[in-house]
Design a protein around this nucleic acid. Structure first.
Length: 425
DNA sequence: TCTGGGGTCCTAGGACCC
DNA sequence: TCTGGGGTCCTAGGACCC
């Protein structure tokens, strides 16, 4: 049997790199990109990292640094990042036989058994150069027998020119001896804290821990991680992306809301957006959940957090049905004495059209007078809204601007909107 | 003033069945 | 001096990832 070999291709500081790509004047300027609602930092250029700006820090905590160092701040521009991501992935698909897109800025390549006229390292360099030439974005490439090893190979050794070949077991162990355990893929804050109390502080120590102990004291997940560090693949390969199991739309409000009518507008809006995504995936939802909550960071204020869910008799992708159900879940949860900071709608029990169960008490589709009407109406709405965002919406939604995200530093849609094309003078 | 949003998987425990 | 055993399904909660 051929030994498995995976490459992880990871875009460096992806969002920040996308912003810099269209602003050559910022080549050496520290850049940060903010989360939705301009809340906290979710991407940093290497200059910003060098200044000690931490991932996830609320932007209002680093106001002084932004001013002092002239850090350039951007709101998240997912239209731009999504399009750049698509270009990177298309390039990768031309370079490797099997590509598993893992996230907006990462993909695994299955290199098992490819004819190796060049070394893995040369292959990695070719990937880097081609992506840079075609798209203009820098990537790191880690190559190893398992994804967990490839993952930290790609992320942790930019000093090697962005390509690390970890197929050699001795090299794996040498590098693992230096990697802190919390940097291993699958080991987060909680697990690393517990591991450290057991004296496990390096990746290599985790790899050498007795597997049954890990399973017993933690779970099968950590056991798998340890196996992967030892070169035994445990993460299944996804040739086609698995269909989504839930779809969520939620948002923190710019200002706290008190009135039921305001919450209704927000929840109606989230329900409509979630249902739009649902139709985009050509799925139907069998269940929906609505939640509302106060601001947990405001510890002085009384806290309130509720969620409610309902199963639909017949799975639906009709915004009218979902919005109406969401509102009837919201109303009994509402208490007027609280300041609400966030709400959301989650759709679950998603099914493909073909597997949809019909309502036993409904007339047969060919006899039902409105058969297909819902689908046609929604299709018309989506078509109009694709051309011009939020032109048609449910009456209960406040309107296009009411729950717009705070995005005070948004860059233009350079690649997806004619009006925003960069101009060459 | 000000702390994101959207996902996945696993486990434990309870209800229920025979 | 003792109170079965095995199975499924569901839910809530915890952990992780980007």
């Amino acid at each position: 049997m051929r030994k498995p070999v995976f490459a992880l291709v990871d875009c460096n500081n992806f969002y920040a790199s996308c912003e810099k790509l269209f602003r050559p004047d910022l080549r050496h300027t520290p850049v940060v990109v903010l989360s939705n609602n301009d809340g906290c930092v979710v991407a940093r250029s290497k200059e910003a990292k060098a200044l000690g700006i931490k991932m996830g820090v609320p932007v209002h905590h680093i106001k002084a640094e932004i001013r002092r160092y002239g850090i350039q701040v951007f709101s998240s521009n997912y239209t731009l990042y999504g399009d750049m991501s698509r270009r990177v992935m298309t390039t990768l698909e031309a370079l490797a036989p099997k590509v598993d897109v893992y996230s907006i800025d990462e993909a695994f390549l299955d290199l098992t058994g490819i004819d190796r006229v060049v070394s893995f390292e040369d292959f990695g360099r070719e990937v880097r150069n081609t992506v840079y030439q075609n798209v203009g974005l820098p990537v790191c490439v880690g190559i190893a027998p398992t994804r967990t090893l490839a993952n930290y190979a790609a992320k942790k050794y930019p000093a090697t020119g962005g390509v690390v070949d970890l197929t050699d077991p001795d090299r794996q162990r040498r590098l693992m001896a230096q990697v802190p355990v919390e940097e291993v893929w699958g080991v987060g804050r909680k697990l690393s804290a517990r591991l450290q109390t057991m004296g496990i502080v390096r990746a290599l120590q985790l790899a050498d821990t007795h597997l049954a102990t890990l399973r017993k004291q933690f779970s099968v997940v950590l056991e798998r991680t340890a196996r992967e560090l030892n070169g035994v693949p445990c993460v299944p390969w996804e040739d086609v992306p698995a269909p989504k199991k839930q779809i969520m739309c939620s948002r923190s409000f710019g200002q706290p809301l008190q009135k039921l009518s305001d919450l209704e507008e927000a929840v109606a809006h989230f329900a409509a957006r979630a249902t739009e995504k649902l139709r985009g995936d050509q799925q139907y939802a069998g269940e929906l959940m609505v939640f509302i909550r106060t601001n947990p960071f405001n510890t002085a204020a009384p806290q309130y957090s509720r969620s409610a869910s309902v199963k639909l008799i017949q799975p639906s992708q009709d915004s009218r049905v979902i919005v109406q159900q969401a509102l009837s879940l919201l109303r009994p949860m509402y208490r007027e004495e609280f300041d609400y900071a966030k709400a959301g709608v989650m759709l679950g029990e998603l099914v493909e059209e073909a597997g949809r169960q019909e309502d036993l008490f409904q007339a047969a589709p060919e006899q039902a007078p409105d058969s297909g009407r819902s689908e046609r109406l929604m299709a018309v709405m989506d078509t109009i809204n694709r051309k011009s965002r939020a032109t048609v919406y449910m009456a209960r939604e406040a309107g296009p601007a009411a729950y717009a995200m705070r995005r005070g530093h948004l860059s233009p849609a350079y690649t997806t909107c004619w009006d925003d094309l960069p101009k060459v003078r």
